[in-house]
């Protein structure tokens, strides 16, 4: 799994981490009923960071990024996204959600709408963009993910990799400042993983702030500026990818890396 995901050189010229804070999480806790899923999470994400979150299943990594756009509610602590604190105020939640793009493991495209309609729906209804402009933007991003010719098909007619690229384009059409990826390649066949990762690399090269839950360690090495390792609802270790992979500190991380990279 440690091989490079892409054959080309990753262009790091625009990948700049700024001082500006994109997401600030302080002492955040979450329970599912009596089960303590996230424990005292502290995390500061700066603009332009590419963070990969890794960890065994059930460690709370998906829950963590789903808290950032309030698909999950946290019970204690504070989450501030782009200067807006996430509380029960629905207005704030909708504002945050329109600034934060999300890509799901199972794509979650809208099957009753064409690819183009999938991409223009939110800009038209949430951002109130005029239809023509929304279509132009959508076609621009569909070209970027290299499937403009599928614009008038329905999601069911596309392959998994193509659907995931549409899902990325759909998020980008909202011009988000932050992108969240929740295991974007886990439901894909091996040959389709590459096309999705290539799209994500291209996005990183443009300086997008990204938080990515993934098992693609090659992607982490090449693109991330920080790798976070979670276990049992806590951040166990975080470091630059070089250090993280070559010189893991905690035993739990060592064990995880040996399992995931060992074969």
């Amino acid at each position: 799994m440690s091989e490079l995901v892409t054959d080309r050189e990753v262009d790091r010229s625009k990948m700049k981490v700024s001082e500006e804070v994109a997401v600030q999480i302080t002492r955040m806790n979450k329970w599912y009923g009596a089960f303590h899923v996230l424990r005292d999470i502290d995390l500061t994400v700066h603009k332009g960071e590419r963070i990969v979150i890794a960890g065994p299943s059930g460690s709370g990594k998906s829950t963590l990024i789903r808290c950032i756009n309030r698909l999950e509610e946290h019970q204690a602590g504070q989450i501030v996204v782009d200067g807006i604190e996430l509380t029960n105020d629905l207005k704030n939640i909708d504002k945050v959600r329109s600034e934060v793009g999300m890509v799901f493991q199972h794509f979650n495209l809208f099957p009753h709408l064409t690819i183009l309609e999938n991409c223009t729906l939110a800009p038209i209804w949430v951002r109130k963009t005029p239809r023509r402009e929304a279509v132009e933007t959508a076609m621009h991003f569909l070209e970027k993910v290299k499937i403009p010719e599928q614009a008038h098909k329905y999601p069911g007619q596309l392959s998994g990799g193509q659907q995931q690229r549409v899902a990325i384009a759909r998020s980008l059409c909202m011009k988000p400042r932050i992108m969240l990826f929740d295991e974007p390649t886990s439901a894909l066949d091996p040959e389709m993983i590459k096309e999705v990762l290539d799209t994500m690399i291209a996005l990183a090269e443009e300086g997008m702030t990204m938080l990515c839950v993934t098992h693609e360690m090659g992607f982490a090495r090449q693109v991330a500026n920080r790798v976070i390792f979670m276990d049992q609802g806590q951040i166990v270790e975080q470091n630059e990818p070089e250090e993280f992979f070559n010189n893991p500190q905690s035993d739990r991380t060592k064990l995880f890396l040996s399992q995931i990279l060992g074969h």
Partner: peptide, 27 residues
């Protein structure tokens, strides 16, 4: 309807009524 449809509508910033009208109810 799979839960993912609700989540995708939420994640795009659609409010409850818009999500119902555009995503959930048609399906």
């Amino acid at each position: 309807l799979p839960r993912g449809q609700y989540e995708a509508a939420d994640a795009l910033g659609l409010d409850y009524w818009k999500a119902q009208r555009l995503i959930i109810m048609p399906q």
